[in-house]
Protein backbone atom coordinates (compact mmCIF):
# COMPACT_ATOMS: atom_id res chain seq x y z
CA UNK A 1 0.00 0.00 0.00
CA UNK A 2 2.65 2.54 1.02
CA UNK A 3 4.74 1.71 -2.03
CA UNK A 4 1.63 2.29 -4.12
CA UNK A 5 1.19 5.73 -2.53
CA UNK A 6 4.85 6.55 -3.13
CA UNK A 7 4.68 5.53 -6.79
CA UNK A 8 1.51 7.53 -7.22
CA UNK A 9 3.01 10.59 -5.54
CA UNK A 10 6.10 10.41 -7.73
CA UNK A 11 4.06 10.17 -10.94
CA UNK A 12 1.88 13.06 -9.83
CA UNK A 13 4.93 15.16 -8.98
CA UNK A 14 6.26 14.77 -12.51
CA UNK A 15 3.00 15.81 -14.12
CA UNK A 16 2.72 18.72 -11.70
CA UNK A 17 6.21 19.93 -12.64
CA UNK A 18 5.43 19.75 -16.35
CA UNK A 19 2.24 21.67 -15.72
CA UNK A 20 4.11 24.35 -13.75
CA UNK A 21 6.67 24.81 -16.53
CA UNK A 22 3.94 25.14 -19.15
CA UNK A 23 1.86 27.59 -17.12
CA UNK A 24 4.88 29.63 -16.07
CA UNK A 25 6.08 30.29 -19.61
CA UNK A 26 2.66 30.51 -21.27
CA UNK A 27 1.38 33.03 -18.74
CA UNK A 28 4.39 35.25 -19.50
CA UNK A 29 3.16 35.34 -23.09
CA UNK A 30 -0.06 37.08 -22.11
CA UNK A 31 1.71 40.40 -21.73
CA UNK A 32 3.31 42.79 -19.27
CA UNK A 33 1.56 43.28 -15.92
CA UNK A 34 2.97 46.81 -15.74
CA UNK A 35 0.71 47.82 -18.59
CA UNK A 36 -2.30 46.76 -16.53
CA UNK A 37 -1.44 47.96 -13.05
CA UNK A 38 0.03 51.38 -13.84
CA UNK A 39 -1.98 54.28 -15.25
CA UNK A 40 -1.69 54.93 -18.97
CA UNK A 41 0.28 58.12 -18.32
CA UNK A 42 2.87 56.39 -16.06
CA UNK A 43 6.46 57.18 -17.09
CA UNK A 44 8.84 54.56 -18.46
CA UNK A 45 10.86 54.99 -15.25
CA UNK A 46 7.88 54.05 -13.10
CA UNK A 47 7.23 51.05 -15.29
CA UNK A 48 10.86 49.95 -14.95
CA UNK A 49 10.62 50.28 -11.20
CA UNK A 50 7.37 48.23 -11.09
CA UNK A 51 9.02 45.46 -13.10
CA UNK A 52 12.10 45.62 -10.88
CA UNK A 53 10.02 45.24 -7.70
CA UNK A 54 8.14 42.22 -9.06
CA UNK A 55 11.26 40.64 -10.54
CA UNK A 56 9.99 40.85 -14.09
CA UNK A 57 13.17 42.41 -15.51
CA UNK A 58 15.38 39.36 -15.25
CA UNK A 59 15.75 37.01 -18.24
CA UNK A 60 12.80 34.57 -18.22
CA UNK A 61 14.94 31.54 -17.37
CA UNK A 62 16.36 33.35 -14.35
CA UNK A 63 12.81 34.23 -13.30
CA UNK A 64 11.88 30.56 -13.58
CA UNK A 65 14.96 29.51 -11.59
CA UNK A 66 14.10 32.01 -8.88
CA UNK A 67 10.51 30.79 -8.81
CA UNK A 68 11.53 27.16 -8.36
CA UNK A 69 14.13 28.13 -5.72
CA UNK A 70 11.48 30.03 -3.74
CA UNK A 71 8.99 27.23 -4.23
CA UNK A 72 11.42 24.77 -2.65
CA UNK A 73 11.36 27.08 0.37
CA UNK A 74 7.55 27.00 0.26
CA UNK A 75 7.41 30.58 -0.92
CA UNK A 76 5.07 31.13 -3.84
CA UNK A 77 5.66 34.81 -4.20
CA UNK A 78 3.44 37.84 -3.76
CA UNK A 79 0.14 38.62 -5.39
CA UNK A 80 0.62 41.77 -7.45
CA UNK A 81 -3.05 42.65 -7.17
CA UNK A 82 -3.51 42.09 -3.44
CA UNK A 83 0.05 42.77 -2.27
CA UNK A 84 -0.14 39.68 -0.02
CA UNK A 85 1.55 36.27 -0.24
CA UNK A 86 -0.03 34.47 -3.20
CA UNK A 87 -0.46 31.26 -1.19
CA UNK A 88 -2.56 33.04 1.46
CA UNK A 89 -4.84 34.46 -1.19
CA UNK A 90 -5.28 31.03 -2.79
CA UNK A 91 -5.80 29.10 0.45
CA UNK A 92 -8.48 31.57 1.51
CA UNK A 93 -10.35 31.14 -1.76
CA UNK A 94 -9.79 27.40 -1.80
CA UNK A 95 -11.44 27.03 1.62
CA UNK A 96 -14.64 28.45 0.12
CA UNK A 97 -14.46 26.16 -2.90
CA UNK A 98 -13.74 23.13 -0.73
CA UNK A 99 -16.83 23.78 1.39
CA UNK A 100 -18.94 24.28 -1.70
CA UNK A 101 -17.61 21.08 -3.30
CA UNK A 102 -17.99 18.98 -0.14
CA UNK A 103 -21.56 20.07 0.54
CA UNK A 104 -22.59 19.62 -3.09
CA UNK A 105 -20.93 16.23 -3.57
CA UNK A 106 -22.29 14.88 -0.28
CA UNK A 107 -25.82 15.79 -1.34
CA UNK A 108 -25.30 14.52 -4.88
CA UNK A 109 -23.84 11.19 -3.76
CA UNK A 110 -26.56 10.50 -1.22
CA UNK A 111 -29.42 11.44 -3.51
CA UNK A 112 -28.03 9.74 -6.61
CA UNK A 113 -27.36 6.45 -4.82
CA UNK A 114 -30.82 6.21 -3.29
CA UNK A 115 -32.69 7.28 -6.42
CA UNK A 116 -30.49 5.30 -8.85
CA UNK A 117 -30.80 2.14 -6.72
CA UNK A 118 -34.56 2.37 -6.42
CA UNK A 119 -34.85 3.01 -10.17
CA UNK A 120 -32.74 -0.08 -10.86
CA UNK A 121 -34.79 -2.28 -8.53
CA UNK A 122 -37.84 -1.85 -10.72
CA UNK A 123 -36.10 -1.10 -14.00
CA UNK A 124 -38.61 0.00 -16.61
CA UNK A 125 -41.19 0.91 -13.98
CA UNK A 126 -42.82 4.28 -13.39
CA UNK A 127 -40.24 5.53 -10.86
CA UNK A 128 -37.41 4.44 -13.16
CA UNK A 129 -38.86 6.32 -16.11
CA UNK A 130 -39.45 9.52 -14.16
CA UNK A 131 -35.99 9.46 -12.57
CA UNK A 132 -34.33 8.66 -15.91
CA UNK A 133 -36.10 11.60 -17.55
CA UNK A 134 -35.21 13.99 -14.71
CA UNK A 135 -31.58 12.87 -14.56
CA UNK A 136 -31.20 13.11 -18.32
CA UNK A 137 -32.47 16.68 -18.26
CA UNK A 138 -30.18 17.41 -15.32
CA UNK A 139 -27.12 15.95 -17.03
CA UNK A 140 -27.69 17.98 -20.17
CA UNK A 141 -28.92 21.34 -18.82
CA UNK A 142 -26.37 24.18 -19.34
CA UNK A 143 -25.53 25.41 -15.83
CA UNK A 144 -25.00 29.07 -16.71
CA UNK A 145 -28.54 29.19 -18.09
CA UNK A 146 -30.03 27.37 -15.11
CA UNK A 147 -28.15 29.75 -12.81
CA UNK A 148 -29.57 32.81 -14.53
CA UNK A 149 -33.09 31.36 -14.55
CA UNK A 150 -32.65 30.51 -10.87
CA UNK A 151 -31.67 34.07 -10.03
CA UNK A 152 -34.53 35.48 -12.07
CA UNK A 153 -37.13 33.22 -10.44
CA UNK A 154 -36.00 32.85 -6.82
CA UNK A 155 -34.09 36.06 -6.22
CA UNK A 156 -35.58 38.69 -8.50
CA UNK A 157 -39.10 37.30 -8.95
CA UNK A 158 -39.98 35.66 -5.63
CA UNK A 159 -37.34 37.46 -3.60
CA UNK A 160 -36.70 34.36 -1.49
CA UNK A 161 -32.95 34.10 -1.98
CA UNK A 162 -30.07 36.59 -2.32
CA UNK A 163 -28.60 37.03 -5.82
CA UNK A 164 -24.94 36.79 -4.80
CA UNK A 165 -22.41 36.92 -1.97
CA UNK A 166 -21.72 34.61 1.00
CA UNK A 167 -23.16 36.21 4.14
CA UNK A 168 -25.80 33.71 5.30
CA UNK A 169 -26.93 30.14 4.79
CA UNK A 170 -29.40 31.43 2.20
CA UNK A 171 -26.50 32.58 0.04
CA UNK A 172 -25.42 28.96 -0.38
CA UNK A 173 -28.75 27.60 -1.53
CA UNK A 174 -28.69 28.65 -5.18
CA UNK A 175 -25.02 27.87 -5.95
CA UNK A 176 -25.25 24.44 -4.28
CA UNK A 177 -28.57 23.65 -5.96
CA UNK A 178 -27.26 24.55 -9.40
CA UNK A 179 -23.93 22.75 -8.99
CA UNK A 180 -25.96 19.73 -7.79
CA UNK A 181 -27.90 19.27 -11.03
CA UNK A 182 -25.33 18.03 -13.53
CA UNK A 183 -23.31 15.58 -11.37
CA UNK A 184 -26.60 14.28 -9.96
CA UNK A 185 -27.95 13.55 -13.45
CA UNK A 186 -24.75 11.77 -14.46
CA UNK A 187 -24.30 9.75 -11.27
CA UNK A 188 -27.94 8.61 -11.13
CA UNK A 189 -27.46 7.09 -14.57
CA UNK A 190 -24.25 5.33 -13.54
CA UNK A 191 -25.74 4.05 -10.27
CA UNK A 192 -28.80 2.78 -12.11
CA UNK A 193 -26.78 0.91 -14.76
CA UNK A 194 -24.36 -0.53 -12.27
CA UNK A 195 -27.15 -1.58 -9.91
CA UNK A 196 -29.10 -3.31 -12.67
CA UNK A 197 -26.03 -5.45 -13.34
CA UNK A 198 -25.52 -6.13 -9.64
CA UNK A 199 -29.17 -6.98 -9.00
CA UNK A 200 -29.20 -9.53 -11.80
CA UNK A 201 -26.05 -11.21 -10.47
CA UNK A 202 -25.85 -14.71 -9.10
CA UNK A 203 -25.12 -13.63 -5.51
CA UNK A 204 -28.38 -11.66 -5.41
CA UNK A 205 -30.15 -14.85 -6.47
CA UNK A 206 -28.47 -16.59 -3.53
CA UNK A 207 -29.65 -13.86 -1.17
CA UNK A 208 -33.21 -14.25 -2.42
CA UNK A 209 -32.95 -18.00 -1.97
CA UNK A 210 -31.87 -17.33 1.63
CA UNK A 211 -35.05 -15.32 2.20
CA UNK A 212 -33.33 -11.95 2.62
CA UNK A 213 -35.69 -8.96 2.42
CA UNK A 214 -35.67 -6.59 -0.56
CA UNK A 215 -34.12 -3.62 1.20
CA UNK A 216 -30.95 -5.38 2.39
CA UNK A 217 -30.70 -7.05 -1.02
CA UNK A 218 -30.57 -3.64 -2.70
CA UNK A 219 -28.57 -1.64 -0.19
CA UNK A 220 -26.33 -4.31 1.34
CA UNK A 221 -25.78 -7.02 -1.28
CA UNK A 222 -25.99 -5.17 -4.58
CA UNK A 223 -24.98 -1.61 -3.72
CA UNK A 224 -21.50 -2.32 -2.40
CA UNK A 225 -20.70 -4.29 -5.54
CA UNK A 226 -22.21 -1.63 -7.75
CA UNK A 227 -20.25 1.21 -6.15
CA UNK A 228 -16.91 0.74 -7.96
CA UNK A 229 -17.83 2.42 -11.27
CA UNK A 230 -19.94 4.95 -9.34
CA UNK A 231 -16.97 6.02 -7.24
CA UNK A 232 -14.94 6.68 -10.38
CA UNK A 233 -17.57 9.09 -11.67
CA UNK A 234 -18.00 10.72 -8.25
CA UNK A 235 -14.24 11.32 -8.27
CA UNK A 236 -14.33 12.93 -11.71
CA UNK A 237 -17.20 15.20 -10.76
CA UNK A 238 -15.63 16.17 -7.43
CA UNK A 239 -12.37 16.99 -9.20
CA UNK A 240 -14.24 19.32 -11.55
CA UNK A 241 -15.76 21.11 -8.56
CA UNK A 242 -12.42 21.35 -6.71
CA UNK A 243 -10.91 23.02 -9.73
CA UNK A 244 -13.41 25.72 -9.02
CA UNK A 245 -16.83 25.97 -10.52
CA UNK A 246 -15.69 28.95 -12.58
CA UNK A 247 -19.01 29.91 -14.12
CA UNK A 248 -21.18 29.44 -11.05
CA UNK A 249 -18.67 31.19 -8.77
CA UNK A 250 -18.54 34.10 -11.16
CA UNK A 251 -22.32 34.39 -11.57
CA UNK A 252 -22.93 34.29 -7.81
CA UNK A 253 -19.88 36.42 -6.92
CA UNK A 254 -18.66 33.49 -4.83
CA UNK A 255 -15.05 34.08 -3.65
CA UNK A 256 -13.81 30.58 -4.58
CA UNK A 257 -10.67 29.42 -6.32
CA UNK A 258 -12.27 29.27 -9.77
CA UNK A 259 -13.23 32.91 -9.70
CA UNK A 260 -9.81 33.77 -8.25
CA UNK A 261 -8.07 31.98 -11.11
CA UNK A 262 -10.07 33.75 -13.81
CA UNK A 263 -9.50 37.12 -12.14
CA UNK A 264 -5.76 36.45 -11.74
CA UNK A 265 -5.34 35.38 -15.34
CA UNK A 266 -7.12 38.50 -16.55
CA UNK A 267 -5.01 40.65 -14.22
CA UNK A 268 -1.72 38.86 -15.09
CA UNK A 269 -1.23 38.04 -11.42
CA UNK A 270 1.13 35.17 -12.35
CA UNK A 271 2.08 34.04 -8.84
CA UNK A 272 -1.53 33.59 -7.83
CA UNK A 273 -2.31 31.58 -10.97
CA UNK A 274 0.62 29.26 -10.27
CA UNK A 275 -0.22 28.93 -6.58
CA UNK A 276 -3.86 28.17 -7.40
CA UNK A 277 -2.79 25.44 -9.82
CA UNK A 278 -0.47 23.92 -7.23
CA UNK A 279 -3.09 23.89 -4.49
CA UNK A 280 -5.91 22.46 -6.61
CA UNK A 281 -3.57 19.87 -8.13
CA UNK A 282 -2.56 18.74 -4.65
CA UNK A 283 -6.23 18.51 -3.66
CA UNK A 284 -7.06 16.45 -6.71
CA UNK A 285 -4.11 14.16 -6.07
CA UNK A 286 -5.30 13.56 -2.52
CA UNK A 287 -8.82 12.94 -3.70
CA UNK A 288 -7.73 10.35 -6.26
CA UNK A 289 -5.78 8.63 -3.53
CA UNK A 290 -8.91 8.57 -1.38
CA UNK A 291 -10.82 7.02 -4.26
CA UNK A 292 -8.22 4.29 -4.70
CA UNK A 293 -8.44 3.62 -0.98
CA UNK A 294 -12.21 3.45 -1.26
CA UNK A 295 -11.90 0.81 -4.00
CA UNK A 296 -9.77 -1.35 -1.74
CA UNK A 297 -12.17 -0.83 1.18
CA UNK A 298 -15.23 -1.75 -0.89
CA UNK A 299 -13.78 -4.74 -2.67
CA UNK A 300 -11.51 -7.11 -0.75
CA UNK A 301 -10.20 -8.54 -4.02
CA UNK A 302 -8.44 -5.24 -4.80
CA UNK A 303 -5.00 -4.97 -3.23
CA UNK A 304 -2.29 -2.48 -4.10
Amino acid sequence: MSSFVRKRAFASLISLLLLLVAVFFLSRLTGDPAALYLPVEASEEMRQQFREVHGLNDPILVQFGNYIWDLLHLDMGESIRKARPALDVVVEAFAWTLQLALITMALVTGAAIVIGSLAAFRAGGFFDRVSSLVSLIGASAPDFWVAIVGIVVFSVGLGWLPTSGTGTVWHWVLPVAILFIRPFGLIVQVVRGSMITALSSAYVKTARAKGVKSRPIIFVHALRNAMLPVITVIGDQAAALLNGAVIIETIFGFPGVGKLMIDSILQRDFNVVLAAILVTALAIFLMNLLIDLAYALLDPRIRY
Binding site: A202, Y203, T206
Partner: peptide, 13 residues
Protein backbone atom coordinates in the same frame (compact mmCIF):
# COMPACT_ATOMS: atom_id res chain seq x y z
CA UNK B 1 -30.79 -23.93 -2.65
CA UNK B 2 -27.21 -24.37 -3.84
CA UNK B 3 -25.98 -23.52 -7.31
CA UNK B 4 -23.56 -24.56 -10.02
CA UNK B 5 -20.94 -21.85 -9.76
CA UNK B 6 -20.34 -21.07 -6.08
CA UNK B 7 -17.84 -18.29 -6.82
CA UNK B 8 -20.37 -16.09 -8.56
CA UNK B 9 -23.16 -17.14 -6.19
CA UNK B 10 -21.29 -15.91 -3.13
CA UNK B 11 -21.15 -12.15 -2.68
CA UNK B 12 -17.50 -11.23 -3.39
CA UNK B 13 -17.35 -8.25 -1.04
Amino acid sequence: MIFQDPLSHLNPV
